[in-house]
């Protein structure tokens, strides 16, 4: 059996909001197998973003363990974790989260900078990636000069920059109209199918879920349904 990309083991997350304790995750167990396309669904306030932060190793659980490629992240130093996260996980955010001062090419190349790739390598790869999302004409444009859909495509290209094993997308179409959103999902699905990459998407949009093979429903910090089996049904559409 191949190593799980990400494994969550009885993960709890408790936020201290003044005197009030807010439990966002209540004993979550989740396994993301290599090559899977997982959608996490739930209403707002259900804890899905918190869960995504755990899966993306952006946050540490209050209790329980998170394994990234079999390694317990609580055992890693912050530097080791950044390095591993940068190499293993690509992020796509709802607000695109591009660096406003850098142009499209530089934004896509940035994750490679942190992995110590050479300038040549970075430019070549970033250009290829931008071309693959159909932005070869816009590589020297700054985010402010791009439309929402274009920005998200840049963000997608950036997520794939370090050839990660898993791409985590947080409401990737949330700020886009449905046509643009559909295109973005097509790019993402295409990457998944062509490269066999693992994709984890958080959304509350059932249309998005229809692209995936596995749907995890979360409510009040707990997984209520794991539609692994339902995948076939959804996918056949």
């Amino acid at each position: 059996m191949p190593t799980l990309v990400i494994k969550l083991e009885n993960v709890w997350k408790v936020y201290q909001l003044g005197k009030v304790e807010l439990t966002a995750l209540k004993g979550i167990n989740l396994e993301v197998t290599p090559g899977a396309f997982v959608t996490i669904m739930g209403p707002s306030g259900s804890g899905k973003s918190t869960l995504l932060n755990m899966i993306g190793c952006l946050d540490v659980p209050t209790k329980g363990k998170v394994f990234l490629k079999g390694k317990d992240i609580s055992q890693l130093s912050e530097t080791q974790l950044s390095q591993l996260r940068g190499k293993t996980i690509g992020f796509v955010f709802q607000e695109f989260n591009l660096l406003p001062n850098l142009d499209a090419l530089e934004n896509v190349a940035l994750p490679m900078v942190f992995q110590g790739a050479s300038l040549e390598e970075r430019i070549k790869k970033a250009k290829e990636l931008l071309a693959s999302v159909g932005l070869e004409e816009r590589i020297y444009h700054q985010p402010a000069e791009l439309s929402g859909g274009e920005r998200q495509r840049v963000a997608l290209a950036r997520a794939f920059a370090n050839d990660p094993e898993v791409v985590i997308a947080d409401e990737p179409t949330g700020n886009l109209d449905s046509t643009t959103g559909k295109k973005i999902m097509e790019v993402l699905t295409d990457f998944h199918k062509r490269e066999g990459k693992t994709i984890v998407v958080v959304t509350h949009d059932p249309n998005i879920a229809s692209y995936s093979e596995e749907v995890v429903n979360i409510k009040d910090g707990q997984i209520i349904v794991n539609h692994r089996e339902a995948a076939q049904v959804l996918w056949s559409k």
């Binding site: 950044s82 940068g86 989260n97 591009l98 660096l99």
Partner: peptide, 9 residues
């Protein structure tokens, strides 16, 4: 963002 995409401290 930079930290999420792999920037070390």
């Amino acid at each position: 963002i930079m930290k999420a995409i792999g920037a070390k401290n």
